[in-house]
């Protein structure tokens, strides 16, 4: 077994197997994960992050496959993280996004990783972000994070990128449903895929009507791009649209502000998580908890009052940084 420092060093020079192993360790919330991120984070921040989200079957993977080829042709080094749901029954997952990865005739500089949302120990958005940063640190120029756009945590993942692409299809429902799903707020670019199908005009029209009602004078107005990814139609327009949004962000340091906002949120969230985790582990490992448990079991005190007593006792204790806390710092 290689030492962790060797793995990190190799990954930083572009070794795929080592990069891949680092992602696994972070994904499993291995005890070395904080160390890995501590080493790699300073190398990250150079890549451009794109979030792609949409309902199952909207054509995300096909779109990603085509986009990746275009980026690669233009000499970019691309990383993709595709997140799919896992089975709620077994915890297992069947991850199929690679079926659509069809790069065979040319050697591209390209790294694709599948993740199952249910098996991520450190939380979905944290782990995808960390995996993306590993790819970033290991030299990828463009990072695409692909998630199924159902549920808040998946949307959060997409939101934490520089450009968010929301993929709709003629089957996506009407404007009201799109609005309710919270997509208007997150999208920087709308794609209406399967545009050769009946209903594509309708959805594009409804979407346009909705965007027209919003005042975009001081901000970016999301374009609506029609594609048929499987027929390779319109993907070049999407590619240009991504470039345009990037130019928009680069002007007046908007990208810096956007990232700062995201990092602020991320940092706050991590503080909350760490805070709660640390205090709870301190409490659960302490003597008071065991005693209280006995008391409640023996019906000497009710659970509600027992909990209050424990928290009050903990607050009045002298604050000692727990061992676990120290480990990460």
């Amino acid at each position: 077994m290689k030492k962790i420092d060797d793995i990190i060093a190799s990954a930083l020079t572009g070794d795929k197997a080592c990069t891949s192993r680092l992602i696994s360790l972070v994904e499993r919330d291995d005890e070395q994960a904080p160390y890995i991120m501590r080493q790699l984070y300073p190398f990250s921040g150079k890549a451009y992050y794109i979030g792609i989200t949409g309902a199952p079957g909207a054509g995300k993977s096909t779109t990603v496959d085509k986009l990746v080829k275009m980026f690669c042709k233009n000499g970019k080094n691309v990383g993709v993280i595709a997140v799919d749901p896992s089975s709620p029954f077994s915890g297992g997952a069947l991850l199929g996004d690679r079926v659509r990865v069809n790069i065979k005739k040319t050697e591209y500089n390209y790294f694709f990783r599948s993740m199952s949302s249910g098996n991520i120990m450190g939380g979905l958005s944290r782990t995808t972000k960390e995996a993306a940063r590993i790819l970033d640190a290991c030299g990828k120029d463009i990072i695409i994070i692909e998630t199924v756009g159902v549920g808040q945590s998946e949307l959060d993942v997409a939101k934490a990128t520089d450009t968010v692409v929301v993929i709709l299809t003629p089957e996506s429902g009407d404007g009201v449903q799109i609005m309710k799903a919270g997509l208007i707020e997150v999208a920087d670019i709308f794609v209406v895929n399967k545009c050769d199908r009946p209903g594509a005009e309708n959805i594009a029209h409804a979407l346009k009507g909705m965007l027209d009602r919003i005042d975009y004078r001081l901000s970016w107005k999301p374009p609506i791009i029609k594609t048929s990814a499987s027929l390779n139609k319109g993907v070049d327009t999407l590619y240009e649209g991504l470039g345009e949004h990037r130019r928009y962000l680069n002007c007046d340091k908007k990208i810096k502000q956007r990232r700062q906002r995201q990092i602020r949120e991320e940092l706050k969230r991590n503080i909350e998580t760490e805070f709660i985790k640390t205090i709870l582990s301190d409490i659960y490992n302490g003597n008071d908890f065991g005693k209280a448990l006995d008391n409640v079991c023996e019906h000497r005190i009710d659970p509600q009052n027992a909990a209050r007593q424990i928290v009050t006792a903990w607050l009045s204790k002298d604050m000692q940084p727990s061992e676990k806390w120290a480990k990460g710092v």
């Binding site: 069947l94 991850l95 790069i103 694709f112």
Partner: peptide
């Protein structure tokens, strides 16, 4: 188990996938 399903692929692609997916 976590299954990464590739569909039809050739040996080079399969090995590449196995590396990237650890």
């Amino acid at each position: 188990m976590e299954v990464i399903y590739l569909g039809n692929k050739f040996p080079e692609q399969i090995v590449e996938a196995a590396v990237e997916e650890d």
